[in-house]
Each structure stands twice: as structure tokens, then as C-alpha cells.
Design a protein around this nucleic acid. Structure first.
Lengths: 218, 218
DNA sequence: TTGCATAACGGAACCGTGTTCCATATCTTA
DNA sequence: TAAGATATGGAACACGGTTCCGTTATGCAA
């Protein structure tokens, strides 16, 4: 849970340890990783974090490469796809969000209250990144990198919270954690700059529905 | 409410009267509209409906132009932007949806039931069009054509229904029609081909929330 | 019916994306 | 220090929306 400053999720600065995938040292029989490669990966992550923060996650890869002072090929060598770069940049923050779940379950007044808080933590995280929609959406095949990360890290956490809330009788709707988090993601993804539209309110509305038995439709 | 066959919204065939904007005849002092222009507009709408139905709304403009047997410039002459073409294709169906509102308000058991049904009508409409997300999202300026159409035609209808449901005491959450329909649109827009994710269920959950007083968050 | 001004057209060209290629430069290791 | 694996830069490609412009077809008047 490093790499966070200020409020839990609003950091995108360049003070993290850069670990796109696995920076562990051991490289037994093979050759050691070239230092310029390591340096460039760091520069890329810093640049990406900075560029994403100012120009939005939609910023062109070329812009990131330029900011890092490298060519596009270098960027693609380290992050085979645009999506991978985004994942690398936000991985820490997703982790932090995941870890906040159990904590909230203890500190909040009730499981349901914990869920509401946690969901809003997630909303804030997504909300501060302009244009996460493109990434959230997923490619034709179905899953994009960030989506997978969200599912892997966040769904288990929310599952536990939902279970607790069901045990306490607060939540009755037959909704899975995946369905709920996916819905919240969709709601927030577009992050409209619209004064008439407050995502937080809508999300709260959605979460409120958890306390109602499922309705018939049609 | 013409241009509809089978279930209310699933039509995209080419049997409508093509009226991109205003096909009214009177052209007093000026020259009459060229017949090839009129013919091409029709061909384009037919082609677009067909292409969108098979390849999704994301289909390239070139594909539509080719299917209509015209050049891209012709397409752009009639529909200045991609978004305009989409609007023209779906206008009838949006109209039909709008007109279904008051009808449901009478036929359904209660205002709330009417809302639930109407919302699901809307969901079905969006759901049958692959990739309406791109359009729903809106361009940098804020509003894309289809978004405007939705807001203009659908929001008033839903506003009336919400008002009725508040009068009957069923709906208590302080949500506006715009907020609600926008949320539903966001939820459905991505129309995932995911077996684990049923949009209708989530939408129902959201609508359920309307019967709960607004919660505190944070 | 003919001529002409002009509305409408076709398709190449432009711009901005993500991604790939490959000749070249750089680093590791012996 | 030299060989060879690794990494790099930037041009090139594919593909999307949109625009440009020389050419064609049409409506109207004579």
C-alpha cells in the first residue's frame, strides 16, 4: 500500500517503485537484464502517470513515449499493448483499494455501510481518471488488461463484503460481486463533466437497491 | 409509430419512410431537390440500418457507403457526421419508445410498474444494438447527436412517469429523469456478451433503489 | 430540346490513432 | 576488448473519421 499520497487514491505522481510486472532480481542461468531497459521502463511509467494525469488516460502512446524520451518501439517492448501500460500505472492504486475492503468491514458501522463506503472509494478512484472508459470497456475478445486486474483483485474483496452483509440481513438482492462492480464501473467509466449528473448519487441509488428484494420485470 | 415490426424495437430493416430531417415538399422560390440526392439518402439509410444490424453500430462509414453504392462524400453530404447517420437510423425507434411511456402509465398496475416496464423497453432497444456505447458516450464538446435525441425525446416522458410515481408515494429517491436514463444508458451501453452479467438484472436493481430514501455516503 | 448554372457525386488524400518492422546502437559477459 | 544477445528509434502500416476537388448529372429556362 505504498505509492499513495493525500487521499487514498488521488495519486498519480512518479514516486512509486516501478514494477511493471515482476522486478525480482534472480536471473540464474540467463543474462542479467540490461540497465537501460530497466531505466527506460521506469521513465515510461513515470511519464505515463504524469501524462495520464494531465491529458487523461486517452492520451496517445506517442505522447507518453515522447515524455519519457524514448521511441514508441521501446514503449511497446515493455508494454506490449496500450492496455498493459495503463494496468502497470494503476496497479498500486487498485491494490490499495482492494486492501481497504477488509479494513472498512471492521471500522464501518455495519457490513452494508462498509460496502457503501468501499464502493465510493472505487468510484473516486475511477472518477479521478478521465476516460478510463476506453480501457474499462474491453476489446472484442472480451477482456482488457485493466478489466482483468479489477476482476481479480476487487471481486474477491467485494464478495466477502456482500457475504457479510447478507449474513447481517442488510442485503437481500441476488446480485454477485462481479455484477455489482461491473455495473459501478460502467456507471462511472464515462465520468461526465456534466453538472446535472452526479455519479455518486446514482451509484448510491444502485447500492440502495441491494436492500430491496428482487423485483419482477416485464 | 410506423417503421416497427415484430417486437416494439427490434426492427432495423429497410421498410421505413426515410426522412433524415424534413422531407416536406414545399420549395417555393428555390430549386427543387435533385432526385438522385433523395434516392441516395434513402439508399444510405437502408444500407446503414442493414450494416448496423449485422456489423454493429461501430461499422465504418466506408462500409455503409459501399453498401449503399455511393462514395463517402455522398454519405457526408447527407449526414455531416457519423453521429447524424446513427440518429437518422434510430430516430423512429426512439420515437416509438417515447410514445410507449404514457401508454404504459395507463395500462400498468402502478406508476412504478410502468417505469420499470418502460425502462426495460429502453434497455431492450439499446441492448439489441451492438456498440451503441461509442455513440452514447458523446464527443469532447459533450453531446453527440443520439444523446441529444435521447434527452429531448425520452427525458420528458420519464419525467412524467417519475412524477406520477412520486405522487403515488412509490418513488422517494431524489433522482431526476435525466440522471436515471443516463445511468441506464451507461449500464447498457457496453452490452457485454458476458454470460455472468445480465444487464436487465442490474437495471432492475437500480430502479429498485428508487423506492429507498437516499442514503448517506462516506 | 437544348444549354447552362450548380447541386451532387466519387474517390483520393489528410489527419490522428495503435501497432509492427528492421537496421542500428548499446550493453553484458567472457 | 570483442562477440553477440538485447534494446532502441523512427519510419511504415492498418484503419478509422473527415475533407478536398475535379467531374458528373440534374433542374430550369429559353
Amino acid at each position: 500500500m505504498q505509492c499513495l499520497n493525500g487521499t487514498v487514491f488521488h495519486n498519480t505522481s512518479a514516486t512509486c517503485d516501478h514494477s511493471g510486472v515482476d522486478t525480482s532480481e534472480p536471473r540464474p542461468a540467463t543474462r542479467r537484464r540490461r540497465t537501460d531497459a530497466k531505466r527506460n521502463e521506469g521513465a515510461l511509467l513515470d511519464a505515463a502517470a504524469s501524462v495520464f494525469a494531465t491529458s487523461g488516460v486517452d492520451a496517445p502512446v506517442r505522447e507518453v513515449a515522447a515524455a519519457a524520451g524514448v521511441g514508441v518501439a521501446t514503449l511497446y517492448r515493455h508494454f506490449p499493448t496500450r492496455s498493459d501500460l495503463v494496468v502497470a500505472v494503476y496497479r498500486h492504486q487498485v491494490d490499495a483499494c482492494a486492501e481497504a475492503g477488509p479494513a472498512l468491514l471492521e471500522s464501518a458501522g455495519s457490513p452494508f455501510a462498509a460496502i457503501l463506503s468501499w464502493i465510493h472509494l472505487f468510484v473516486d478512484f475511477l472518477g479521478t481518471k478521465h476516460g478510463l472508459a476506453r480501457v474499462w470497456e474491453g476489446d472484442p475478445d472480451g477482456f482488457t488488461g485493466l478489466h482483468v486486474l479489477f476482476v481479480e483483485r476487487l471481486v474477491p474483496v467485494l464478495t466477502d463484503m456482500l457475504e457479510a452483509a447478507r449474513a447481517s440481513g442488510e442485503v437481500v438482492a441476488p446480485i454477485t460481486a462481479y455484477q455489482l462492480i461491473r455495473a459501478v464501473g460502467d456507471l462511472v467509466a464515462f465520468t461526465p463533466v456534466d453538472p446535472d449528473y452526479d455519479v455518486r448519487k446514482i451509484v448510491t441509488l444502485l447500492v440502495s437497491g441491494l436492500r430491496q428484494p428482487q423485483l419482477e420485470h416485464r
